[in-house]
């Protein structure tokens, strides 16, 4: 199975970290993985995106031109990446931040009010993980357990108290799309 995922939004939303979380979790599952950031003259508040490839066989191109799934965290990213999604692919839109509708009829659209869900949980900073949880539920790219395992490995010990709320956010995202 070849997952070619693009995560896109504003700089500062944790876009690159979300991609790294997926990539690391894929590595833990012994899959072939690659992570490639957009590295133009970006800044906080500007646009940022990264490409994550998770595959059972060696990855030829780390550059994703026809993503199997995209996570959209702002409107400019929707405009940029909607046309690129592979037919039958997934587009997950954070509808708390994007008011525009997806126009293409040939892709699977999920509107997820990630910031609202995060605020209900009392922590608006976990919106990204709500999106990742939804992606995981829809595509099975990596398991929630592997993502939790990743957080244990990459976060310094004094931040391990944040792991439960992050796991909860992943589960909330998965739950949201399951109920759709």
């Amino acid at each position: 199975m070849l997952h070619e995922i693009i995560i896109a939004g504003f700089g500062g939303q944790g876009i690159l970290s979300m991609g790294q979380l997926l990539t690391y979790a894929g590595m833990i599952e012994n899959k072939e993985v690659a992570w490639l950031p957009s590295y133009g003259p970006e800044m906080r508040g500007g646009t940022a995106n990264c490409a994550v490839t998770v595959s059972d066989i060696p990855i030829s191109s780390p550059v994703v031109s026809e993503p199997t799934a995209v996570i959209i965290m702002n409107k400019p990213s929707l405009i940029k990446f909607e046309p690129m999604v592979k037919p039958d692919g997934f587009i997950l839109v954070n509808s708390s931040l994007v008011d525009q509708k997806v126009k293409r009829p040939d892709i699977k659209v999920y509107e997820i009010p990630a910031n609202e869900i995060a605020e209900e949980m009392g922590n608006s900073r976990v919106a990204g993980n709500i999106m990742l949880g939804a992606l995981q539920e829809l595509t099975g790219v990596v398991s929630i357990d592997s993502m939790e395992e990743t957080l244990k490995k990459v976060l310094p010990p004094h931040k391990h108290n944040l792991i439960p709320v992050n796991r909860q956010a992943l589960e909330k995202g998965a739950e949201f799309v399951r109920s759709k």
């Binding site: 790294q20 990539t23 590595m27 993985v33 690659a34 992570w35 490639l36 950031p37 590295y39 780390p62 550059v63």
Partner: peptide
């Protein structure tokens, strides 16, 4: 090149 410099792999 820029891809190899910027990309992450295991």
């Amino acid at each position: 090149d820029g891809i190899l410099g910027q990309m992450m792999e295991p």
